[in-house]
């Protein structure tokens, strides 16, 4: 076991990321923050709409979308990749709903069947065309956040620009459509009666989800995206019940888990993306235990037994 854990080097883990390594760690942290914050903001709505596992499904099906787009266009251009992933994401939603509606297979099983199939197609295509596709199984799993160029080498790296603009786009969309999203997530029936197009909102959310999933794919891979979609929203959901505050808290969660995650990765000598998720899960654990309203500590205290009847019932 000893050879596995590198000796804890205070300078290397705590100080250097902010001094000597800053060009590199700064780029990682910015990228990590962009990805986690974007996912977290979108994830809030997935949680509210009970579609958390559609996030899982869409993030997996991005892979075949990317590979097929690459095989057709022959380039790794941003737009081709975006389009491919977008189509794959929408196709996933449509297939899941078709299976669910046309047969008696329930939604959970239809999600399970759909995304594993699409993902399997993606993996097989990657393996068959491994010589041509600049993708491998590794990056599907871990992402390549560590391969992003440092900040001081020739301006701002392209992935950072892309992810940053997606973040800005998501923030803008949420600001513009806040009311519609809120009411249609809370009560679709009410939303329809108020004249909100819930179908458009649904597919809009799925499209944004696909865009987020494809842009995050490069940095964190297909599977860890799920954690980044759910963890910030789940953590802030433990701390507040107001949607606006949930947004703020999920961004805070994103920032904290990214910074902690980069340090953790340096300390353990592991990949950065999973370390960010582990840090985020740790923060979630803290919120779970210490939440002022739903925390476990409330349960560990002896629950106060209601002694007298409430006045209005007697």
């Amino acid at each position: 076991m000893n050879e596995l854990l590198p000796a804890f080097d205070f300078h290397h883990v705590v100080v250097a990321p902010w001094t000597d390594y800053l060009p590199a760690t700064g780029a990682w942290m910015l990228m990590g923050f962009f990805v986690t914050a974007t996912c977290g903001l979108v994830g809030n709505y997935l949680m509210l709409r009970r579609m958390a596992l559609m996030g899982d499904a869409v993030s997996h099906s991005v892979l075949p979308g990317l590979v097929i787009a690459f095989l057709i266009t022959g380039t790794r251009g941003t737009w081709a990749m975006f389009l491919g992933a977008l189509l794959a994401g929408v196709a996933t939603t449509v297939i899941v709903e078709t299976i669910h509606r046309k047969t008696r297979v329930k939604q959970d099983a239809s999600i399970g069947v759909t995304f594993t199939t699409l993902f399997a197609i993606g993996v097989v295509l990657v393996s068959v065309y491994s010589s041509q596709v600049d993708l491998d199984a590794e990056c599907v799993l871990y992402g390549e956040i560590g391969n992003i160029a440092a900040l001081d080498e020739g301006g701002i790296p392209a992935p950072l620009v892309r992810m940053g603009s997606v973040l800005i786009g998501v923030v803008l969309l949420i600001t513009i459509f806040y009311k519609q999203l809120l009411v249609s997530s809370f009560d679709p029936g009410l939303a329809r009666s108020l004249g909100v197009n819930t179908t458009a909102t649904h597919y809009g959310t799925m499209i944004v989800l696909s865009i987020v999933a494809v842009s995050a794919f490069e940095a964190v891979g297909a599977i860890l995206v799920v954690a980044m979609l759910i963890l910030p929203g789940a953590t802030s959901g433990l701390l507040t019940t107001r949607l606006a505050r949930m947004h703020g808290l999920s961004v805070v969660h994103a920032a904290l888990s990214t910074v902690l995650g980069v340090h953790l990765a340096l300390a353990l000598g592991s990949q950065i993306a999973p370390a960010i998720v582990v840090a985020g899960a740790g923060l979630f654990g803290l919120a779970w235990v210490f939440s002022p309203t739903q925390g476990l500590w409330l349960r560990w205290r002896k629950p106060a037994k209601p002694g007298t009847a409430p006045a209005e019932a007697s």
Binding site: D56, L141, Y142, L224, A227, I230, A265, Q271, P274
Partner: peptide, 14 residues
Amino acid sequence: LGLVLASFFAAGLC
């Protein structure tokens, strides 16, 4: 489910 899935997976990857 999603939370546990991805968090455990990340820990495993680390």
